[in-house]
Write a protein that binds this DNA or RNA. Structure first.
Lengths: 334, 334
DNA sequence: GTGAAAGCGCTAACAC
DNA sequence: GTGTTAGCGCTTTCAC
């Protein structure tokens, strides 16, 4: 019942613990014969190395923190999968916290990460600037922080994984125009997030280019949920502002908007077409399926994990930014 | 940059490490004055206890394994949240793996958990019997296993958190009948899962009771995804079997079914009404919103965590089954 | 009330 | 090629 340790093997084989250790680690300074005996005994007695001891010795916790705004949509789960692909085989644990889009909760989560002695933190933040002080504080402790999707204000020098929100947003809006839409609503994300600004800017640029920009078509929300999407469109309708399409910051917002329109018996995409940013299965689980900018989430997770590893291995490794490509996927909603 | 240890405090204050330790642990055998000095110094130098050392010493990894079939839907995330509520404050890490509904992947995941020296495993399994040998093997190592939602065959004595699938299924089907439906399709889950059998039995019982049971209305799937739901209904339509409603094993299957029907311009709920088992936001993100048996997922996670804790504290603690209540939520799809 | 020392499981210098 | 030993950071006897 008790765990078998290297000491048990040592007694069992009348060998020193160091020889056992060496044999297990494939050190060359071990007789082939001996190694075999050790390996056999280890197998037979069911020896499993004690990671905690290893970690204590190496001074690492072999734990990575993963801090995300939410896990209600599959967005974070997909990124997580990518991170796991890279880190599990290397023996890293991943500890996850959700911030519920609240910078204060994010703060607490980051403190938790510090207590857990994580070797690095991979984070999708809630607010561009509000927690900059802790990000800096944590990095000063020697804990690398890797940002993905939503990144902090330029003033912080950190590694990050992003897509080009500005360009992708422009492309999507231009596509809507090419399908004949002129009154394109933009449901913007929380303005405390740089991506929201970038996507808004892309939207603006195109509408200005085609000379159809109208301030009234921009709808603010104070949150990112389905309900916020619904409310946004509800407001717009009540203000009697005509529109023929919607470009939403996220698929969740888009789905909320769509749901409300369908309740109002508005036909999609005939009367109103809808597009958004996504990368999850959600886009294709609704009817009609949503046209969206499909972010390569799993790949983004893998990239973030790699960035974390390079900082862990060498803390002076210069920060890098990985720009991922995202694909526009045209579905039935446009 | 280097971590402050108890030794640094010891040097700094010219006290032995044991006194420092005692002061930090609020041991009574410390002069109040001394304790104060220690606490102040700890604060000032930024001392943070090294969890790894603690764990080595206590023989625990303070890590819990969480093994789920998938993280595409928010199902597992919600349970995870509940587990975190209980375990994070206690200093436990949680390591998560997805099995992709594949018992072989689940096996590998469980082995990974063993390697990670987890103190307990909380699992939603892929197949009722196929991995019983490892479950037993793991428990024989002294690692408690807590099952939730999908549980192993009765032959295993384990702690579990479940809802009454049979009853809830019956209630939902009876509700459909009361809304005037007579040709109720059941999309069953994988038969390697006890829940699928239970829900099927509940369905059968009611249809038999009302004398409207028809074997043809039961649709098998070989998976749990959205696409499987679509395919199931496609098959049914191609076989020209008339029906006026659907009761699906899961919301994902229901959404697939609904999506296909909407594509075929079938009106919901007028021509076909739909209900399923759920507990996630998905049910209300589609149009029309899905009627479903709403499982208390976060609460289930909390319960599972409690069960894990009692087994960790006392390995001989008898296994318990917690039966949670689930609510029938009537939405627009019926 | 405080200190010295052992020990948790393992690796890595250092001997031989 | 193998053994001895120190040490990772901490708690916990055991002395005093």
């Amino acid at each position: 019942m008790r765990r078998i340790t290297i000491k048990d093997l040592s007694k069992f084989l009348s060998l020193s613990t160091s020889t056992i250790s060496r044999a297990l680690l494939n050190d060359k300074n071990v007789n082939e014969e001996t190694r075999k005996r050790v390996l056999d005994a280890a197998e037979k007695l069911g020896y499993k190395p004690n990671l905690t001891a290893l970690n204590l010795q190496s001074g690492q916790s072999k734990t990575i923190g993963f801090v995300v705004p939410e896990m209600i949509t599959p967005f974070s789960s997909k990124v997580l999968k990518g991170i796991q692909n890279i880190l599990y085989p290397l023996g890293y644990r991943i500890i996850i916290t959700q911030s519920d889009e609240d910078p204060l909760v994010e703060r607490k989560n980051l403190q938790l990460m510090e207590e857990f002695n994580v070797d690095a933190i991979i984070i999708n933040l809630c607010h561009e600037t509000q927690n900059n002080d802790i990000y800096e504080h944590i990095m000063k402790q020697g804990i690398p922080m890797i940002f993905f999707d939503r990144i902090p204000h330029k003033s912080l020098d950190v590694s990050k994984v992003i897509i080009d929100d500005y360009i992708k947003s422009s492309l999507m809006v231009e596509y809507l125009i090419k399908t004949g839409r002129k009154r394109i609503v933009h449901i913007i994300g929380p303005t405390g997030i740089q991506n929201a600004v970038e996507r808004l800017n892309g939207y603006k640029r195109i509408l200005l280019k085609y000379n159809i920009f109208d301030e009234n078509l921009i709808v603010h929300t104070d949150g990112m949920t389905f309900e916020h999407g619904k409310k946004a469109i509800k407001q717009l309708l009540s203000r009697n502002i005509p529109f023929d399409s919607i470009f939403a910051f996220s698929d969740t917002l888009a789905m909320g908007a769509m749901n409300f329109l369908l309740e109002q018996k508005v036909s999609i995409p005939d009367e109103v077409s809808i597009a958004s940013f996504s990368g999850t299965e959600l886009s294709s689980m609704v009817y009609p399926q949503l046209t969206s900018v499909q972010q390569p989430l799993e790949k983004m997770g893998e990239a973030a994990a790699e960035l974390a590893l390079e900082k862990i291995k060498n803390s002076t490794f210069p920060s890098r930014t990985i720009l991922m490509d995202a694909e526009l996927v045209y579905r039935a909603s446009t």
